[in-house]
Amino acid sequence: MPTPETLDLVVTRKEPVAVDVVKLTLARRDGGPLPTWEPGAHLDLHLGDDLAVVRQYSLCSQPADRTCYEVAVLREPEGRGGSAYVVDRLNVGDTVPVSLPRNHFALEPSPRYVFVAGGIGITPMLPMIEAAEAGGAEWTLLYGGRTRSSMAFADDLVARWGTKVTVQPADEHGLLDLAALLDAPSPGTVVYCCGPEPLLHAIEAACWSWPAGSLHIERFAPAPTSDSGVEDTEFEVEFAQSGVTLTVPADRSIMAVADEADIPIVYSCEEGTCGSCEVAVLLGEPDHRDSVLSAQEREASATMMICVSRARSARLVLDV
């Protein structure tokens, strides 16, 4: 995809809003007005030391405020480092390249809305609720999460909107009872839901009898293919058949380094799914990041996919 236009914004505020969740406020360095957006829009944030990590976050501020964008970020220990970078490393004053707002989750005009949020999926609901209210629509919000303290904005929402908002942490109430909420299609009502995959599956199931187009869902970006939880580092690879030893720098793959040296490897997808670059491991401990090998195969480490996988040991010996 062509690189979309980006804005270099500066972090003007960073505040915790729940356990492991921070809210970032981003503005132009000159304080000038930002491009307009509609509720449901998200931004791509370019993160990491080399800005190579791109993550999508829903805007949770109000579109009328052109001076800043706000996003809330949950630190995901299972993530590949985008959210950890935001929560642990990004500071007020830092510059973040940001895409123009894009919207795959636009709020359709309707007299009645049912909003359902799970965890950090609450973020797009904040501007949606304001827009629904401003348009004179009826609405309710059902908000679930693991524990009350993990649920960003929960107290503010209840304080501001009272009984229109139902907050149900799973440790107090169990999973959200979507069947009860959505048991019968209600004419003129549209449902907006954002949250983790199981919630989306559940709401799709609960809305099966609703007219087509009633349910709108926002899916979090697909899970990253790998997770080493650590910064990539440099290591050495000996290509036994070729009789060559090369250094793989932190920012390059084994595949790229081998290809450049004309070691006869084959590859295709470059993302650890197609299996074409599988090579036998003779020595060393691979850091498997592909989606080809099974758990047992990872454990055995007889082979690895060199397009995405790296090394836990300082040195690998590969049979190629």
């Binding site: 697909p222 197609c274 299996g275 074409s276």
Partner: peptide
Amino acid sequence: TRENAKTHLAFGNALHVCLGS
């Protein structure tokens, strides 16, 4: 929306995976 749709074998798999995919 199927999450593992990409694990299909329409392009084959491994060494001979479809060059033109």
